[in-house]
Nucleic acid binder design. Structure first.
Lengths: 342, 342
DNA sequence: CTGTTAGCGCCTTCAT
DNA sequence: ATGAAGGCGCTAACAG
C-alpha cells in the first residue's frame, strides 16, 4: 500500500558507498574487505568500519557475473511429496550450506515437461551444477550429455552410465537385514515386501535370498510381493498363518507393511519378538517409534546420499568428474521388535 | 580430472555471440529477443535463429544486476524434517515457479544462529523477498523491521504485528471438526489432544469447546492434553473407558493420537464408527488411509498456506504490503471413521 | 600501498 | 530500423 519510508526502503549499500565513506577507491575497498594483503592495516580498518556501518553485503550477482560462476546449484526433485526426497534434500542442503553454495529448489511433480522447463530456468540462472533427485530407485532417463554443467543423480540413477548416480545399496540392505535376523538366532524367515515393479523390492529380496543361501538356509517360501501398504502386510501375514507356515521372523519391505504384519501377529496371539521377530524398511520414525514394540528397521541413510551427492557435485564443479552408479550402504536400526531367541 | 572436450565444456553463449552470428549489434539482438517493436521482422527472425542455434539463454545474473532485482526469493524453514514444512514449501514453490521466480531453500534446523547466517547469505544473493516457515503455530521472533526486502511468515506467525503472517485457522478448525461430529448426530464428544505447550492444541480445544457450547452441549470432561503420540491416544482412551465415561465420538489432536484411540476402542470391543466416531487432525495420508476404518481428519490446507504466502510476498515485492496475522481455513476430509448414527 | 582502467552480460537511452 | 555508448556492482590487472 503505502511504501514504507523507514530504513527498509533504502537500496542496499554498494562497494562504492563504502569506499566513499571510508575515503578510498572501490578497488582498495574491495581488497580490504576480501583480505588481500596489499592494504595498510589502518586503511583496512577504516573500510571495514564503513562497511559495517552501512551493513554492506557484497552483491553475489555481480560477483558471479565476473567469476563466471554463480555459487548456486539446482536441486531438481521429481516428487517432493514422497518421503524419500526430503532427507536427501536435507543432506544436500546441509553439505552445500557449509560451503557457501546456495540451493535453488525445483519440484517437477513427476512431469517430464515441467522438469525440462526447470532445467532451462536453472541454466538461465547459471547454476554451477545440478542434482536430480528421483522418487524411486529405478533408473530414469538422463538429462543428456549436452548440459553445460555437471549433474549428479540421487536415489534414482540415470540410465546413461556416463552420468554419475548415487543410490542406496538395496541388495546389501537385504543382506544385512537377514544378517541381523540370523544373528538373533532366527532360521524360519519369511519376506513380505512391496510392489515388484519397484527395483528396490526386487533388489532387497535378492540380497535377502543370497544371505539366506550363504547361511545354508532355505527361505520360507518365495518373497511375497504385493504393495507397500499396511493392508498388504496384514493380508500376507494372515495367509501365512492360515497355512500354518512355521516362521520365527518376518522381514518386511517397508515399515508400513511391518505395521500390518505386527497387528495381525498380535491379533493371532503371537508375541513379537519372542515368537516372531519383525523387521521393517525405511526407518520411518513415525511408524517405527509408535509400533508396539518399537520396530527394528533398515535405514537407507538418505541424508548421507544427499550429502554424498553434494560432495560429488562440488568435486565435479571443481573439475573432478566421476561416472557410473555408486552406492551408499544402508544400516540396521535395532529396536524392540527383534531380539535374540531366548 | 581431464576436462571434457565435448560440447559440455564450451561456455554458454552470450548475447554477443548471438549478435555476431546474426550479423547485428548486441542492442538489436537484445531488442529482437525481448520482443521490442523497433526491429524488422526479417532481422528478428535471423536473431532468433542464431539464438536457437547457440542455445542461448539470457544470463539472469546479468539481468538481475541491471534490474536491481534477482527474480529470486528465499525460503527459510526452521525444520525441514517435520512434516508441516513440506506442503507449505510445495505450495510456495508451485506459486513462484509459475511466475518465473526461483526459490532458494535454506534450513535453519531450529537454530537461531544458523537462521541469521542464512538470512545474511540470502540478502547477499539479493533475494527479492523472504518466506519464513516455522515448525509450529506458536509465534516466533521477527527477523526485524530493518530488512531491505519484504518478509512473509508462514505457519509460525511473527511476534511483531507489523509483519505479515499466514497461519492455519486452528480455532475454526476445532469448530468445524465438532460441527462435523454434531452433524453425525454425536453428542457425547471427548477431546484427546496433544501437548498443551502448543498453541495449536489450545486453539483447537477452544474452537471445539465453543462449537459445543453453541450447540448447547456439555463437553465430555475437559480436553485431555498429553503429547501428540499414538501412545498417548491409547492411554487416554483406556482411562476414559476404565472410568465408564459414556462417549459416542472422540476428536483427536492428531492423526497419530487417533490411531492410538482407535486401536484401544477396537481392543475393547467398540466399533468405529458405529459405536464411537473418531476424528483426527493433520490429514496425514500414511496414517489416515491405513487406519481401520480410514480416518476422517482435518486438513490444514498447508499447500494453500504456502501458496498464499507466495502471493502475499509477490504483492509485497510489487509494493503492496500487508501486515498482521491472516488465517487460512482448514477443511474436514471425511472418511470411514465418522458416520451418522443410524 | 593505493588508484585507475577494463570488463563480466545485459538492457536502455540516444544518435544515426 | 539499427548501432554506439553507458552503467548495474564487483574484481583483477596494471600504474603510480
Amino acid at each position: 500500500m503505502t511504501p514504507a519510508l523507514g530504513p527498509s526502503r533504502s537500496q542496499p549499500a554498494t562497494l562504492n558507498d563504502v569506499a566513499r565513506l571510508a575515503g578510498v577507491s572501490v578497488a582498495t575497498a574491495s581488497k580490504a574487505l576480501n583480505g588481500r594483503s596489499q592494504v595498510r592495516a589502518e586503511t583496512r580498518q577504516r573500510v571495514v568500519e564503513a562497511a559495517e556501518r552501512l551493513s554492506f553485503r557484497p552483491n553475489q550477482l555481480a560477483r558471479g557475473l565476473l567469476a563466471g560462476r554463480s555459487g548456486t546449484v539446482g536441486l531438481l526433485t521429481s516428487d517432493l511429496e514422497g518421503r524419500f526426497s526430503i532427507p536427501i534434500l536435507m543432506g544436500a542442503e546441509d553439505a552445500f550450506g557449509a560451503g557457501e553454495v546456495a540451493v535453488l529448489l525445483c519440484d517437477a511433480r513427476g512431469d517430464a515437461i515441467r522438469e525440462q522447463h526447470h532445467v532451462r530456468a536453472l541454466l538461465g540462472r547459471r547454476v554451477d551444477g545440478l542434482i536430480v533427485v528421483g522418487s524411486r530407485t529405478d533408473p530414469r532417463p538422463s538429462l543428456g550429455r549436452e548440459l553445460p554443467v555437471p549433474v549428479v543423480y540421487a536415489y534414482a540413477p540415470s540410465e546413461d552410465p556416463a552420468d554419475l548416480s548415487l543410490v542406496p545399496d538395496n541388495v546389501d540392505a537385504g543382506r544385512i537385514a537377514v544378517g541381523h535376523l540370523l544373528a538373533c538366532g532366527r532360521t524360519r524367515i519369511a519376506h513380505i515386501t512391496g510392489d515388484p515393479a519397484y527395483l528396490a523390492a526386487r533388489e532387497r529380496a535378492q540380497g535377502a535370498g543370497a544371505a539366506l543361501a550363504e547361511a545354508g538356509l532355505e527361505p520360507v517360501g518365495e518373497p511375497r510381493f504385493g504393495d507397500w501398504s499396511e493392508g498388504w502386510g496384514r493380508a500376507a501375514t494372515a495367509l501365512l498363518l492360515d497355512r500354518r507356515v512355521e516362521i520365527d521372523a518376518v522381514l518386511c519391505g517397508s515399515d508400513q507393511i511391518a505395521r500390518g504384519v505386527m497387528d495381525v501377529l498380535r491379533e493371532r496371539g503371537l508375541r513379537v519378538p519372542e515368537d516372531v521377530a519383525v523387521m521393517g524398511f525405511d526407518n520411518w520414525q513415525v511408524l517405527t517409534a509408535a509400533s508396539r514394540p518399537p520396530l527394528t528397521s533398515v535405514d537407507m541413510n538418505l541424508e548421507q546420499v544427499g550429502r554424498a551427492a553434494a560432495h560429488a557435485l562440488s568435486a565435479a564443479i571443481g573439475g573432478v568428474r566421476r561416472s557410473g552408479v555408486e552406492t551408499v550402504r544402508c544400516r540396521v536400526v535395532i529396536r524392540g521388535s527383534t531380539a535374540p531367541l531366548s
